[in-house]
Design a protein around this nucleic acid. Structure first.
Length: 595
RNA sequence: GCGCCUGUAGCUCAUUCGGAUAGAGCACCGGCCUUCUAAGCCGGGGGUAGCAGGUUCGAGUCCUGCCAGGCGCGCCA
């Protein structure tokens, strides 16, 4: 099977051997007098004029040898052993040594791709280590919006990439179903329900105002009829003022929650669960439709029912990581590089969200994961140091923890920015976005940029389905290749891959060389994208690959009369099609046969 | 005030542990469909990489100081 180490590094490895041989020869001849040979750096080149690979060794040796780089380079090139994989060696610029692969070496990638098929580009860098990847984890207080979509597409693609390079990947959604926000949702649902029961309600400023709350209330009303009905006069009796009346909206909603709990008793849980389940189901379905499937949905409420958090706090108290001050318990996160210590247990006895979260992150490792990737909104960046501190206090090697901060998505309709607020009720949902632009375009757009880069998402542009959309360009390349084979069939031809592979030496055009070179880079792109958590490298690569193909398509006829050349070219574009499919699949995008 | 992120062509963004003449797309200008899908190709114009120093063979990339924008600094989640 084709692997990253075996094939891609083979050429680099081969060049390394050649250069080392040259250096040793020069040392033995007394030309060079190096006490040690520095590690060799061999890069794939950006510019094809610079060949396929380049090394800066002559530049690095300039100082220890006290000689000019170009002079050193010439010595090295003269001492290089001859190789059938190397067509040409040149010295360029300040002293770079450029290597031009032979067409033989380049065209080897075609049989490699055709043999490995959907496994091409995969490797075992991850050594089957277990990676926990947490993303989205939006509070179940409303439908996902376009910002969450970016998290979903990014996290899912990073997971796919990590799997491709040999990690055992576990995708998890942390359900924040234990906080005050959930109580606000419950109160919001109940008030809408009461309206359906015929009560006249002035809706609180701080309640969730989205239409989905009314939908949930309708379900509740259908299930419970009037069983949870209370008169508005009773519900609102002696409550503090809401904001419009000059009061505090937070105090007001809190009082309303307590009132709801008192009046409803056991019924409160019915309302609460109705809201939670409806929204969690909606989020789940939304993600599945986008192609994002989590291995686990980890409930905070279930988690805090276990002893894990209690045990952690008890342990930390014992170990001296926690001290008491002003009636609360503080975690010494400053001992681990945080700005200030953090409360984990409030003076009223309640644990903070952070206490649960610290225990959750440590628990991931106790569950057997070797590595944690935590994908979280950039607005949480201040939160990362204390999580890191918690992991260290928990005895976890933080080198196995990576927090990826995803910047906001700013929505535009043409030139106009769309304001978004979860409670304002006027926000664009992920579902609406998918309906407008399609899942493929949504996923592709979302991962096109580095996660720490702000994203301006123009709905009008994404909706336009014009050729501005890079996804069409790549998909079109795939469809065109499929079309070539349909043409072949219409003309009564029968593709014979064996003949094609036997005639790869006929691929001598510059466009063919370019395409072969690009195909050869794929494994490295996958490895880089995975290890750096940067799927945008893959989208850019696919764009470039499609460009190489379209240029080739426009310059040369594939279905030539020369059978050997014809099938060699078809073998090449079959390999190209395979890489398009492989890359798009990692991003979660379809590769249509026709458009 | 302190901390993190960002600043590259008119716009949106790339630039592979610091490498060669900073690249794409969109937009703009000019060409290419009797030949495998023109959702395509070919060519052209367009840059003080926010500003100023520093480190070295070499800096968009690393360090320092400013400037501008975003975000964060709770016994909220």
């Amino acid at each position: 099977m084709y692997t990253f180490e075996k094939e891609y590094n083979l050429m680099k490895q081969h060049l390394e051997e050649l250069i080392l041989a040259a250096l040793n020869t020069l040392q033995a001849q007394g030309e060079f007098s190096l006490s040690s040979i520095p590690p060799l750096q061999i890069d794939t080149t950006k510019d094809k004029q610079h060949g396929d690979f380049a090394t800066n060794i002559a530049l690095v040796l300039a100082k220890p040898l006290q000689r000019k780089p170009r002079e050193i380079a010439e010595k090295i090139v003269h001492a290089l052993p001859v190789s059938p994989n190397v067509a040409k060696v040149e010295i360029a610029g300040p002293g770079f040594i450029n290597f031009f692969s032979s067409m033989q070496a380049l065209s080897d990638v075609v049989p490699a791709i055709l043999a490995a098929q959907d496994k091409f580009g995969h490797c075992q860098l991850g050594q089957s280590k277990r990676v926990h990847i947490e993303f989205v984890s939006a509070n179940p207080t409303g439908p996902l919006h376009v910002g969450h979509g970016r998290h979903a597409a990014y996290g899912d693609t990073v997971g796919n990439l990590l799997k491709a390079v040999g990690f055992s990947v576990h995708k998890e959604y942390y359900v924040n179903d234990a906080g005050r926000q959930m109580d606000i949702l419950a109160a919001s649902v109940w008030l809408r329900y009461l309206t359906l029961c015929g009560e006249t309600i002035i809706f609180p400023t701080n309640a969730y105002r989205g239409g989905y709350v009314v939908d949930i209330a309708k379900v509740l009303h259908a299930q419970q009829d009037k069983r949870l009905h209370m008169a508005a006069a009773v519900v609102f009796k002696d409550l503090p003022r809401d904001e419009p009346e000059g009061g505090d909206k937070e105090e007001y909603i809190n009082a309303l929650i307590i009132r709801a709990q008192q009046l409803l008793g056991d019924g409160y849980k019915v309302v609460f669960d109705c809201g939670l389940h409806a929204i969690q189901q909606d989020i789940h379905d939304d993600l599945v439709e986008l192609g994002v499937v989590f291995d686990t949905w980890f409930s905070e409420r279930d988690f805090i029912k276990t002893d894990v958090v209690n045990n952690l706090i008890a342990t930390w108290k014992q170990q001296g990581y926690v001290y008491e001050r002003e009636g609360a318990y503080w975690f010494r996160s400053t001992d681990f590089g945080d700005e200030k210590d953090r409360v984990i247990e409030r003076s009223n006895g309640q644990r903070t969200y952070f206490a649960n979260d610290a225990a959750y992150h440590i628990d991931k490792f106790h569950r057997g994961f070797d590595k944690e990737v935590w994908i979280v909104g950039a607005d949480h960046h201040g939160y990362v140091p204390r999580v890191r501190a918690a992991l260290q206090a928990g005895g976890i090697d933080v080198n196995n923890f990576s927090a990826q901060l995803v910047q906001f998505v700013t929505l535009y309709r043409g030139k106009e920015q769309v304001q978004m607020s979860t409670r304002g009720g006027e926000f664009v949902t992920l579902r609406e976005l998918r309906a407008e632009v399609g899942n493929d375009a949504a996923r592709f757009f979302y991962v096109m940029r580095k996660c720490e880069q702000h994203m301006d998402f123009d709905l009008d542009l994404a909706k336009s389905q014009s050729n501005d959309n890079p996804i069409y360009y790549i998909q079109y390349a795939h469809a065109r290749i499929c079309s070539v084979f349909r043409q072949l069939a219409e003309r009564g031809g029968q593709y014979d891959q064996t003949i094609g592979l036997a005639h790869l030496h006929l691929l001598t055009e510059s466009y063919e060389r370019q395409l072969l070179t690009r195909l050869g880079h794929y494994p490295q792109v996958i490895a880089n994208a995975a290890l750096q958590y940067e799927p945008h490298l893959l989208t850019h690569y696919l764009r470039d690959l499609a460009t190489d193909f379209h240029a080739y398509y426009n310059s040369h006829q594939f279905l030539t009369d020369d059978i050997g050349l014809r099938y060699a070219r078809l073998a090449l574009i079959t390999a190209t099609r395979q890489i398009l499919i492989n890359g798009l699949k990692l991003i979660g995008v379809q590769a249509p046969d026709s458009m």
